[in-house]
Amino acid sequence: MPQPLNYLKETASQTAGPYVHIGLIPAMAGFDIFEKNFSNVLVTPSTQGERITLEGRVLDGTGTPLRDVLLEIWQANASGRYNHPADRSAGAPDDEFRGWGRAGSDFDSGLITFETIKPGAITDKAGRKCAPHVNIWIVARGINIGLNTRLYFSDEEAANAADPVLNLVEPPVRRATLIATRGERAGKVVYSFTINLQGAEETVFFDV
């Protein structure tokens, strides 16, 4: 027998269930309990960068929007730097931007929105530029382990074409499932996205 390695095992995931709002967004469950709450608004008036709205839905295998899904996003600031001590890249830090938010889908329409800024391009450890993107984590009733995906931006065609992660996606036709479409509404920039859990246009999910 060789020496034992004795690593611990990761705790198994379990579904967030239909009442995930109680713990993570209690106002959506219908009550007020904490002095301070987390939300889908990532910006303060002092945050640097272009204000954008991310707006989308998560669809099940029949194309029906999930109305009890919860999304979290994690993104770099306008300079392409994450607000975390492990990011020692050259981008300027922004104390007014944590870079993280969570949102529950609307109980009727399934619509999910985030108010944030467009992240800057990121430089990876090998010195390559990565296209601006938002990291997404999805949990809900019926989802046994959180799903990881990303959103890229439709107006970043050149950067997207060179992005090392997008270029891993095969067949290339599936790359489009990760790209949010830029539009404008009432003078605000809105990026629209659809996350398909199944079907011909199933979104690319990552094992990170």
Binding site: D60, G61, L66, I143, N144, L147, V169, L197, T203
Partner: peptide, 10 residues
């Protein structure tokens, strides 16, 4: 059943 991806994770 309706909420599980069917493609391999990347």
């Amino acid at each position: 059943v309706l909420r599980s991806p069917r493609q391999a994770l990347l």
